Simulated scan of single mutants.
Amino acid sequence: MVGAADRARRLAGLDRERVTAAAVRLLDAEGPARFSMRRLAAELNVTAMSVYWYVDTKDELLELALDAVFGELELPEPESEADWRDRLRGLATGYRAMLVRHPWVSALIGNPVDVGPCSAAFSACVRRVAADTGIPPYGQVGAVSAVFQFVYGAQFAGAESGERDSEFALDLLIAGIEAMVARSGR
């Protein structure tokens, strides 16, 4: 019995990465409300049970899909010499672009907790940038939260005016961080 299952998996050419990539494509096309393991299996041209060889639950697969799209973000190197403003702007702009490319992420982010390696790398990078702003440690979380909550909550359409408005608002938030740094005397 096990030999037949292994043979079927090999014939299907499935692996965890392919299943995750198909889940991302399906989520992009139909959103999380219409996503199901049956639908995914049909997309992969396999039985629904075949998908469970690679993930234990739908929630696990959604976590993998979420982490996969976080992996699309370009993160500055930890020892980057770039100014914190440029790094923060790049992270926020990339995050916004990811949310526009994958609108379903908004419904899933933080639920379940983003624990994958790509999500963790993004969070660590944001914390490094926050530390480099000069904001006192007690204010760093609040500063970057303001930026990323703005980006998360204000996903402007892809139109030129939306891009311009988003960039202007991001500049205002960065200027606010600069003002708080100056106010703290750092």
Rank of each mutant, 00 (worst) to 15 (best):
E63L: 09
R18P: 00
T47W: 10
C125Q: 01
D132Q: 08
R39C: 02
S36P: 03
E63W: 04
A179D: 13
R127C: 04
T133R: 03
S119Q: 02
E163A: 11
E17V: 10
V46C: 11
D171K: 09
E72K: 10
V19W: 05
N111S: 10
D83H: 15
V55N: 05
G185N: 03
L26D: 06
G3A: 14
L91Y: 04
R85G: 09
D83R: 14
R85I: 11
R96G: 04
E160P: 07
P103G: 09
S80L: 11
G185Y: 05
G90P: 03
L99I: 13
S36A: 04
L173D: 03
Q140K: 07
L64M: 14
R38N: 01
E77M: 12
D83N: 15
Q149E: 13
A48Y: 10
V141W: 09
L14T: 08
M49W: 14
L173N: 08
R34E: 13
F148E: 04
G31S: 08
R85M: 10
S50Q: 15
S123H: 07
D59V: 13
D86G: 10
R101D: 12
D165W: 07
A65P: 07
F70K: 01
L64E: 12
V100G: 00
A143Q: 08
E163M: 08
A41D: 09
P78D: 12
V181L: 08
V144T: 15
G142A: 12
G142N: 08
R128I: 03
A121Q: 01
